[in-house]
């Protein structure tokens, strides 16, 4: 039964990584940039939701929606001000700008909300006054937060897959990630498509932030950075640029981390997660589901 418990914990942690990794991978697929500020958008989303739910007493669901809206706007503003002027320059310059944005968000959050950690309400997801339920005559405790997280992740995954394969904007996104110039010639508004990608990625980051803080309830200005790095590795693990890859990578990363903590050692769990990543990349240099593109001369 403890094994099943670890599986659920791992899946819920993996779902959080997967949602963040989806944001990374979509932005990378289209803008070909590593958006290091993504982790900090998660933190902003969690803070916004915290403020609206705790200080203004709104219902959690409304809090999540407001957080998504704010982060969407934030994502679009960041893209407009910091990344759009750099669209045609070397990717390293954009990377450094993204790092600048990340520092900016962290320090702005510290000025606005203070450096001391805020404790996110653990009773965020309760149904009928309970935080969870028990199975197998009390042998297995399941938190609603974990179930909600996994469900939301699956819903987002399905919605994104349908969106990118069926809708006009989704098709435009895939076209842009394939070849920007050709897409432009076909009458696709590339700038608008990139903005929409950032908007979706940031909205997902807000959801991830709220879900993460409802399971791991410490909220401070640097909350987003380590999950951000891990989700980034999850995206690479699954093959960066691939949406199913980000999902798979996130879930696997969460499971590996949870099992390492449960059965091997808690101290070295990060090292083992990253070591697995390195081994996978050595065996499959383009990630699990990434397409290996041979170079043409």
């Amino acid at each position: 039964m403890t094994f099943l418990g670890h599986v659920i914990t791992g899946l819920s942690l993996g779902s959080i990584y997967a949602i963040i990794a989806l944001g990374y991978t979509m932005v990378y697929g289209i803008a070909k940039m590593l958006n290091f500020a993504h982790g900090d958008v998660i933190m902003v989303g969690a803070y916004i939701c915290f403020i609206f739910v705790m200080n203004l007493g709104l219902p959690p669901l409304l809090g999540i929606i407001i957080a998504m809206a704010v982060c969407t706007v934030l994502g679009i503003i960041i893209e407009r001000l910091a990344y759009k002027p750099l669209r045609s320059v070397p990717s390293l310059a954009v990377l450094i700008t993204a790092i600048g944005v990340s520092y900016f968000l962290q320090n702005a959050a510290q000025l606005i909300w203070g450096a001391s950690p805020k404790s996110f309400p653990t009773t965020f997801f309760n149904f009928g006054g309970n935080q969870g339920f028990t199975l197998f005559e009390g042998q297995l405790n399941v938190n609603y937060a974990a179930i909600v997280t996994i469900c939301i992740c699956v819903i987002i995954m399905i919605a994104l897959t349908i969106f990118t394969s069926k809708s006009k904007m989704g098709k435009a996104m895939r076209a842009c990630s394939e070849d920007k110039n050709a897409a432009r010639l076909m009458g696709i508004n590339v700038d608008k498509t990139i903005s929409v990608t950032f908007a979706i990625g940031s909205a997902l980051a807000a959801v991830a932030g709220v879900l993460m803080c409802s399971t791991y309830p410490t909220l401070m200005p640097t909350t987003g950075s380590l999950p951000g790095i891990k989700a980034f590795t999850a995206a690479v693990f699954g093959g960066i640029g691939s949406i199913p890859g980000a999902f798979l990578g996130g879930i696997l990363l969460g499971l590996i981390e949870t099992f390492t903590k449960a059965y091997i050692t808690t101290d070295l769990s990060d090292a083992i997660v990253f070591a697995v990543l390195i081994v996978v990349l050595i065996v499959k240099p383009a990630g699990l589901l990434g397409k290996y593109r041979p170079e043409k001369v």
Partner: peptide
């Protein structure tokens, strides 16, 4: 391993290495 990888994948391996070193020394 770096020799097999290119671009951003190499970046991620070096990132992972830095985190592993930090974790082990801790």
């Amino acid at each position: 391993p770096v020799l097999r990888l290119r671009g951003d994948y190499l970046a991620i391996v070096t990132l992972a290495f830095g985190e592993i070193i930090k974790n082990i020394i801790t």
